[in-house]
Design a protein around this nucleic acid. Structure first.
Lengths: 240, 240
DNA sequence: GAGTGGTCTAGACCACCGC
DNA sequence: CGGTGGTCTAGACCACTCG
């Protein structure tokens, strides 16, 4: 038992990690039932509420399923097989290729009606518009358009060339907390197909996202388009 | 206060609903701070852990943000504005149009390697293959291909004509708990573009999903494609 | 009836924030 | 320093499932 009560890492988190790795390592095989809460609680010397929270963490990740009166079982299905064929981008990353980002343009523009509403800033107020091209292994993967409110007009251009946008924001003390995004598809525009090295009118996967910081204020409006042969989105849903 | 301690609806859920509706009705304006846990707990006569759980529910929906030492604030941004332009399908539904589903084909086939792995059934075992066309207001929206394991070979064809697949499964006693899905884009195939009334090679939005029941067993493998002008996916992410 | 998870309580101590 | 949320405890009672 590698539980450390003096660690700053919460107990429930340490327990959740142990359960999760027991599942992914198949020490707990798919479909098997895990120990009940009371037994776990006594065996680890931890109170039942803490054990419950640990288990709930793993349930929320879609790895466990619980039924009252029955028990807790491991969900079948390796998390990433079969469906994974499509995501060459992931393969590139796992193959050790670091994604790179090129800053294509940087402008300060007045907020349009749509931008003003999405960012909750005054209509016509200054906003920072960025256009970037993300590549992996020299292959262009996505065109990223971002709009940020006036507080960020002075973002460091050099930093944007070398680090991801979120990294730069975090180093300014901004902590992103909530993101709402809409995923869709459409034909690539002329400039997009050129940047992404696609035929004219080829399909692209799109995402529009608004990100909020830990005070609830909008930090960023992103409008991205991805090469669908190199990128896709994974989502896990748990019915509550 | 419309809290009902004798109701089967849990207290934390009743409280969470109240907070949520206070936010969506703008009784709690965006950016404002809500009462702290202790005050809420005393005012409602509910213990602090129960209040915490209620607040956490709303945080997980992306409507609240918490900071230690500061308090709990309402996230800005109406949940559905600006980004919503793309989703005509939602508009149809809200406009009172009920989606309809036509059963195009129904076959029993041996499981291929990919299907066997995704559903965790023996290679070559019987599986039920369905192809359906979903429409709203007479407009085709999606082509839905589904594969189900042998337990469901006897699904009622008439029911499938009249009710959604999930409705039929639920009436058999199956409760879906976890879904893992991958969202992407590609060109429509010839038959897809004909069914969806699109030009040849037009973009479609795709989703591949595996659904598991409350015992952790795979229930369904879905491979769907959507008209991107009529459908998109909304996702809310909360950093933990 | 025995075993399971689901809910709720009353209280404790701590870490972090701003004044 | 006082106020906030984050963690943890010990125990209670209930609802559900199964044999």
């Amino acid at each position: 038992m590698d539980l450390d009560r003096s660690s700053p890492v919460p107990l429930y988190y340490q327990v959740a990690e142990r359960i999760e790795s027991a599942i992914t390592s198949h020490a707990l095989p798919a479909g098997s039932r895990i120990e009940n809460e009371i037994a776990l609680s006594e065996r680890l010397g931890i109170s039942r509420p803490t054990i419950r929270r640990a288990i709930q963490e793993v349930v929320d990740k879609g790895l466990l399923v619980r039924r009252r009166g029955i028990g807790t079982q491991v969900v079948q299905g390796q998390v990433t097989r079969g469906l994974e064929l499509t995501s060459l981008f992931d393969d590139l990353i796992r193959g050790g290729q670091v994604p790179t980002t090129e800053l294509l343009s940087r402008e300060t523009l007045p907020a349009s009606a749509a931008v003003a509403e999405a960012l909750a800033v005054p209509l016509g107020s200054d906003t920072l518009h960025l256009r970037r091209l993300r590549s992996a292994d020299g292959v262009p993967v996505a065109v990223l358009d971002n709009v940020l409110p006036a507080d960020y007009l002075d973002l460091d251009t050099a930093a944007l060339q070398n680090y991801g946008l979120y990294q730069v924001l975090r180093s300014r003390g901004t902590t992103m907390r909530v993101a709402r995004q809409r995923i869709g598809a459409r034909r690539a525009s002329a400039d997009e197909s050129e940047l992404l090295e696609l035929e004219d009118g080829a399909p692209v996967l799109t995402a529009s996202r608004t990100v909020f910081d830990d005070s609830g204020r909008a930090v960023e409006l992103g409008t991205h388009c991805y090469r669908p042969d190199l990128y896709s989105f994974d989502v896990t849903l748990v019915q509550k």
